[in-house]
Design a protein around this nucleic acid. Structure first.
Lengths: 348, 348
DNA sequence: GTGAAAGCGCTAACAG
DNA sequence: CTGTTAGCGCTTTCAC
């Protein structure tokens, strides 16, 4: 077993050709005579040679690595995103540098800085906040250096970047409209951070649905959440203990849904019976447990794949007619019964 | 905004020093006069300079990237592992190349090959199978090239590698012993793949507990699972429909626990009431939903951190007195009530 | 179709 | 303390 990686010179020597020829067969570039091709290939196999990527990067000033920046690896939503990204990257022969920000802007800045030195060929990021001017500037800097950036799920205050999002507003609008259609009038929402697209867009869908149906917004029914379980749990308890409690709650993300369910469990409320629940993003685990929660759903891995595809498109074509492309993937309602409350329906 | 990354020559020119001096201040190596240090730093800031990592790697033939190979990014167990790894890597200033194998040996081989070209400084891998001679050979090859490998959670048929595992056998032994202590005699297990440490070690703990207490193993109570929900679900249904069904089921991993719960739900069985359930690996989601499942638990992020630490130790010290270190982290029983079945207790 | 040679951007002796 | 220089391993003209 070789104690040291072989380099192109050793292969050339072993094959009795020049390093240029070795390089050519490794890269399938110019045609090389059949005889020499075989000799090189044999030498490569014999010496177990693999080209040094760093050298190649340096020489060509290109890269095959993309940086992926994600706020919370443990949230299944981001795992699924990551899955889609890795799958697509894999097909394209690209490697992934993974960075976690843990929802901290400070970490995000550091990460973005450290990414600079890798001369990545592209960046996919779900930024912590839409209003972080520091992050914004760093991202612009990457673009200025010719490194394409794709925003995933969350956006920033700029149209300069390609991004892939989903029709959250529409999805929530349809969901809440459905709640109204079947009789709900007292519908609460536990929102996400207002500083991010998912947060405010979902809230907007909720507001539009109520307005469109002539239902006035009630301040006590709009609870500012943070997409975390604990906060959603606390809000749900408060909502249910209101003198005039809502008959339905819209949970703005997967963790919020868990928070609601936790509170319902403690209060002895059954979804689809005592109270209605509508979630955002489907949760496999709940189905296994026979919780029939209706949700606004979307193909999360597809979002990741689409982000990779967007990046890809920026590589080959130097003409970037549509830099700043906003790809919007659809959302879909999945009705499972949790939207119902027999009492409410009867009252209609 | 610079259309092109600045290099060390531009900095040297701007600062009026040689590239060596620039290199020195960038690396805090030799001391540089205060005056020149300032001039360099100013130039760096002015030109927004970040050293090219590829060039540095090539020049020093070192690397600051470690490869992480994981079978299923979507399984929360691996997300948590990844979280621990990224956190530790971050502290150490290392970057992570993420690779997913999707539990496919074929993919694993490809990934391992593609990793070669990156001249990584270390590898952390949860291999698909313990008996894959191809993977084994590739891993040996990395070690031979001086690239340390750490196995995480799963092992391979070799003691040549550092690895971090947990006391699964002991944990399961204690869990099943506890089941017996409180009155259970008919205890089933849904196992994992026999080809991996977690699979067979957990089974072994189960067998030992029964034997130690003079309870003979029943073939119909030992169900070969695959750590997936569907399979566990099917097994649970069959177990519960046995003429002489078990009073307790041990679920060998998180997904298996879900499979059991799914089946229980359909059969109308309540854990801790009609049937006992003991799981392996804690599941936050279940607690939120008020499922009190007793489990054999372990600190999963700590496993990832420990893997990084093991790698780290191999970097600095060329003396590797203990290559092949097997770090075994503890498991712990968390009792929540699902182990009980009033009827069984009464029968004692 | 093939080889010689000039970089890619950086580090690390080696002189001074 | 500082500058010069020789690589690190590869790609890529440019001649032949």
């Amino acid at each position: 077993m070789s104690r040291q990686e072989a380099n192109i010179y050793e292969i050339a020597k072993e094959a009795g050709v020049s390093i240029a020829t070795v390089s050519r067969v490794m890269n399938h570039s110019t045609t090389v005579s059949e005889k020499n091709t075989k000799r090189v290939l044999d030498a490569v196999k014999k010496l177990n040679y693999v080209p040094n990527n760093a050298a190649r990067c340096l020489s060509t000033s290109t890269s095959t690595s993309i940086g992926v920046v994600i706020p919370d690896i443990n949230n299944p939503f981001f795992s699924q995103l990551l899955q889609g990204i890795t799958r697509a990257a894999d097909e394209m022969g690209l490697n992934i540098f993974l960075f976690g920000t843990n929802e901290s802007s400070e970490r995000e800045h550091k990460v973005l800085d450290s990414m600079r030195e890798h001369r990545l060929c592209g960046i996919i990021i779900t930024p912590v906040s839409a209003q972080d001017s520091d992050t914004l500037q760093k991202l612009h800097n990457f673009e200025a250096l010719g490194i394409p950036v794709v925003l995933l799920d969350r956006e920033v205050d700029s149209n300069a970047f390609d991004r892939v999002v989903t029709a959250d507003e529409e999805g929530v609008f349809l969901a809440v409209s459905e709640l109204i259609r079947i009789g709900h009038r007292k519908i609460a929402i536990i929102t996400g951070p207002e500083a991010s697209r998912p947060g405010y867009e979902r809230l907007r869908g909720y507001c539009r649905a109520l307005k469109d149906h002539g239902i006035s917004l009630r301040e006590d029914y709009i609870r500012k959440g943070d997409f975390m379980v604990d906060c959603a749990y606390a809000h749900t308890l408060e909502l249910c203990r209101l003198p005039d409690p809502p008959t339905a709650i819209f949970a703005s993300n997967n963790m919020t849904t868990y928070g609601c369910l936790k509170a319902f469990g403690e209060l002895g409320l059954r979804i689809g019976e005592d109270i209605a629940l509508f979630g955002f993003d489907d949760i496999d685990e709940l189905r296994w447990l026979n919780y029939n929660v209706s949700v606004v759903s979307r193909d999360v891995p597809a979002m990741g794949e689409q982000a990779m595809r967007l990046l890809m498109r920026r590589f080959d074509s130097e003409d970037r007619p549509e830099q700043g492309t906003r790809t919007c993937l659809p959302t879909e309602l999945i009705m499972r019964g949790s939207e119902r409350v027999p009492g409410v329906l009867a009252e209609r």
